[in-house]
Design a protein around this nucleic acid. Sequence first.
DNA 1: CTAGGGTTAG
Length: 476
Amino acid sequence: MLLPNLRFFSKYCVFQLRTYTYFAPPPSNGPCLSLLANKCQSMHQLKQVHAQMIISAHIYDSFAASRLLCFCALSQSGDLDYAFRIFGSTCRPNSFMYNTLIRALASGPHPLEALLLFIDMRRLGVVPGKHTFPFLLKACCNSRSLQHCKQVHTQILKFGLDIDLHVTNGLVRGYSISNNLVEARILFDEFPGKNLSLWTTIISGYAQSYCSNEALMLFNQMIAQGFEPNGVTLAPVLSACARAGCLDLGEGIHEFMKNKGIEVGVILSTALVYMYAKNGAITKAQKVFESMFERNIATWNAMICGLATHGDAKDALILFQKLTKEQLVPNDVTFIGVLSACCHAGLLDVGRDIFHSMKPIYGIEPKIEHYGCIVDLLGREGKLLEAEELIKEMPWRADVVILGALLAASKNNGNTKLAERVVKDILALEPHNHGVHVALSNMYAEAGQWQQVLTRRKMMKEEKLKKAPGWSLVDT
DNA sequence: CTAGGGTTAG
């Protein structure tokens, strides 16, 4: 198994110093102290119980110690370092203790440390159970690591736990979140006892990967098999409706939620706002938006981005102004919405001002997506040189999306020289991108440069031959 | 001791 970064792990290495002497706990008081550990509200109280356990030697009883561990590792007012100290002084940690710590590490800042702990567990011969793997997979999810997900999968197969529903759910989620929907789908299809959660996992996997139609097809299949969706299932389905343009289905789901009395919290309302706004039903989106008790930044973003895609740039900007007056802080997604709104309305100066205010006023470092919006905006306003300069100034290498925006701009301005440079860069990233050859060739044709058109066609043909070698009969 | 949810330019 590949080791995650050891740098962050050193302070937890105390468990390697564990002593193996076993002190039998006295018969009395043990259950009582365990109960007390369960009732702890603060670290202060927990330390008192811990002291009692040390005095009475119950700390050497892994059941009692595990009670202490639970609070330290998982509670809001707990202390993970202290949990590891208790763990380090336990002679024979059981799988429950390992599971608890793996669970805590998986949702911490360095999730892959959970895998290191798993390695330690295996080295000591502690057998992992069906509770161990969902936590390990959560660690893989949180670090978006396909490689580690695969490695955990092999361990699951080794222990024969792939028949467990929770474990499979974790695997399906792990694979779909790390962009391996094919593997996720195979696991999902082949699992016999699917429940609503497993359906929800695969549907949200597709929805989050922008495979909206696939997500909706699965939703249909789920309904056909007699499952009744709850709010958790409907959130990703609404998001798929938004992106696939299924206003009818989205409205139907809204009605269904009303009829079934499904509680509509922030998340579902946000999904509804986005679904209506993205589909052009701005009034309905606003109605849901206005009726909400609680709105967070995602809610505002859904409304702003919806307005932006629908072309209501002014309203999007007004909403952004309102947002800055609320207690909420805009995030990077907010700026993508606002900048794309400026782009659609051709508001160059406003867009440029907002872009330059991101870091100094809102403390948000512009990402490549934000540069993309500005490049697009500059390009549409004919400022090709400024757009090209901006791309060169970026701290990252330009991606296909941003170069595509520049190519479109050079096409609209009939600037073949710039287009040639851009196409060269795009082909360096995607050698099989035929679209850019076609775009450039069209530009040459418009300018009457027929010799260049022929050269392009020849290049495309050569590229096709490279992609589909002689033995292939398929004309790509 | 476990699993599933909303917002992101072209």
